[in-house]
Design a binder for these strands. Sequence first.
DNA 1: CCTGCAGTCTGACATTTGTCACGGGCGGGG
DNA 2: CCCCGCCCGTGACAAATGTCAGACTGCAGG
Lengths: 201, 201
Amino acid sequence: MIRVLLADDEHLIRGAIAALLSLEDDMEVVAQAATGAEALSLARALHPDVAVLDLQLPDLDGVTVATTLHAEVPTCRTMIVTSHGLPGHLKRALTGGVRGFLAKTVAAEVLATVVRTVHAGGRYVDPQLAAEAISAGDSPLTAREADVLRLAGDGAPVDEIARRAALSPGTVRNYLSSAVTKTGAANRHEAARIARGRGWI
Amino acid sequence: MIRVLLADDEHLIRGAIAALLSLEDDMEVVAQAATGAEALSLARALHPDVAVLDLQLPDLDGVTVATTLHAEVPTCRTMIVTSHGLPGHLKRALTGGVRGFLAKTVAAEVLATVVRTVHAGGRYVDPQLAAEAISAGDSPLTAREADVLRLAGDGAPVDEIARRAALSPGTVRNYLSSAVTKTGAANRHEAARIARGRGWI
DNA sequence: CCTGCAGTCTGACATTTGTCACGGGCGGGG
DNA sequence: CCCCGCCCGTGACAAATGTCAGACTGCAGG
């Protein structure tokens, strides 16, 4: 019997996936979490065999949870399920010890199969996401550029960003300009969109 | 037996919800669609009792599908399920004949209950979404302002917007300025985010 | 009729932004 | 050591953007 922990912030989805997995007779959902913190404490208490984590959770993101889990509860294999395929996260996930990574667009039957594969010590990465990750390549942004671009993401003016990053406005503009060039965008807002789409911020 | 049509672009979620509903012994999922067009043609062919539609579909959005369905297949009750509660869509949905509207954050058990309620001719709107819709109020944007703001949404420069809306750049700036004031934003990008969040564009 | 009002549109002006050139400090490899 | 890349800053210029006053339309009410 494979003991599964499920983490997803959307209650309905979580319940639906639990129902789906419960149809398989070699696995049972032993815990459900709505947040990253909750997932961690449940995993510590119950030592499930496999943790199925949504990429976006209200507090920590799925990859962070997986990395922590990998260190603290090594018997628990982790896998990530996501709506939006973000190549950057895939890479982070794999280096963090995640063994399965798939998009929510895959057929329902695949999920149970992957849970079994992961439980048996195998790995599975959605081929399409893998292809995107490879073609997208690594982030060309430096740490600072990524920081500033992240802050620019919600449309804040330069002064605001400068204050929040504790930088001079001129420096902020330089970083943004550099980020815009590297992403091939026309302005910082588009650059932020592109970088987000690639998982660079 | 309640015959249900399910539309959601994410295959895994669709399958999971189908599994969930199939656990109820008074309902069966007779069709699954990944796009709005597919949902429409399946509904025309099969005349399901209830259509459960995701708000965001690749082609048409869920509300549009529901409105069409309401006109063409009046025996089919419709309900919307959504990840992001957008007050504007709720209003559009209700005037379009949708009888159920709920967020994916609700508990799994609620879904089946609402399907039954809707099938019986009742209505159900997620209380939280309803509250948000009321507090958010109507869109203060004029038709033109909304158009322009929509075009500005993906970070296009003013000239681009002007060409696409067949307006002078000056006029575009004026509309944007007005929209920025009305949304209380600091610039058009933030205004676009706010308006999108409220379902105004 | 004409007054007021809301929506649409435009051009002129001030501010913000993107871009470029430049300089100094810090740390890791060749 | 010396070079290179990253970090942080300045100043100046050009382009994009935000803001304002105002003109024209159609429409509702006195």
